[in-house]
């Protein structure tokens, strides 16, 4: 693969954030976030609803611009004015967003390639090629066989699990250095959850990095090299694998929630 200088392999951290803050009007969604993700690290991001997890990954992947702060990708500073989802894709970041990330009325093949279509030099899409690869992703990576789903199926006809599968299949196809999963297992059947966890493990085994947002503590605790706890826009704990048992972690989070309520009342 042709590695350009800014996607080269000579780096310590795939992504590093310094003092990232972001406000939505009065809501301070992120306040002075510092974090660094190693090149082959699985980092679990946990915290209550509204803690700022999704917002943080949207900053990292160019969906929203922070109010202040710096971002380094492969140790090189990022110029916010030129940072975008497209640029993040180019820098080999792949994201499965929590909210809808598929066009409901569009066929599956368009959803896999939208934003980075295979085109000729005039920008016309090579539909046959996109369809073929989409069918390949369905069969080989996702095991969608004999269920009447193919590259031409419209997303609105798929189940929640199938949709999440497509989003993950897309991330797997665009083989990246950092894969971000934002609560991918919500609303999935147990067997589907197992496939997602296998996927996270395969990220680790193939030498890449992952930020994994997950509500199920047992799952992240088992998988992650490091857990980062977010609370009301701040990082309140950075726990290495083995430093806390699942029970200790659960207790820590419950205490955090209690103190939050106390602060809220007081």
């Amino acid at each position: 693969m042709d590695k350009q200088s800014d996607t080269g392999s000579d780096y310590a951290h795939i992504v590093r954030a310094e003092g990232i803050s972001l406000s939505y009007g009065k809501i301070r969604a992120l306040q002075g976030i510092n974090l660094a993700i190693g090149r082959n690290e699985i980092v679990g991001l946990i915290g209550d609803n509204g803690a700022g997890k999704s917002t943080l990954i949207k900053v990292l992947t160019g969906v929203v611009r922070p109010t202040s702060g710096k971002l380094y990708i492969r140790d090189k500073p990022v110029d916010w004015t030129h940072y975008s989802v497209r640029e993040a894709h180019r820098l080999r970041f792949e994201t499965v967003y929590q909210e809808k990330s598929l066009g409901e009325k569009q066929p599956l093949w368009r959803n896999i390639f939208v934003g980075r279509q295979i085109t000729n030099r005039f920008g016309f899409i090579k539909v046959a090629e996109e369809r073929r690869i989409a069918n390949d992703i369905l069969k080989r990576q996702l095991g969608f066989r004999g269920v009447g789903i193919d590259a031409d199926s419209t997303i609105s006809k798929l189940s929640g699990g199938e949709r999440q599968g497509i989003a993950i299949g897309r991330a797997m196809h665009f083989d990246s250095d950092l894969i971000i999963l934002d609560e991918p297992t919500v609303a999935l059947a147990i067997s589907e959850v197992r496939k997602v966890l296998d996927f996270v493990r395969s990220i680790k085994n193939s030498g890449r990095a992952c930020i994994y947002i997950e509500h199920n503590l047992a799952h992240v605790h088992a998988l992650a090299d490091r857990l980062i706890v977010l609370d009301r826009g701040r990082i309140v704990a950075d726990i290495k694998s083995g430093e806390m048992t699942l029970e200790e972690l659960t207790k820590f989070l419950i205490d955090l929630q209690k103190s939050g309520h106390a602060a809220g009342i007081g």
Binding site: S84, V85, S101, V114, G123
Partner: peptide, 29 residues
């Protein structure tokens, strides 16, 4: 017809009309 159904620009239009937020996270300007 080719622009709408076969060109990158047409696909972007369809996604924007489908769901603006989805279009944004897909990297469409």
């Amino acid at each position: 017809w080719f622009i709408l159904n076969r060109h990158r620009f047409g696909e972007h239009i369809l996604f924007i009309g489908d769901n603006r937020q989805v279009a944004r996270v897909a990297g469409i300007n």
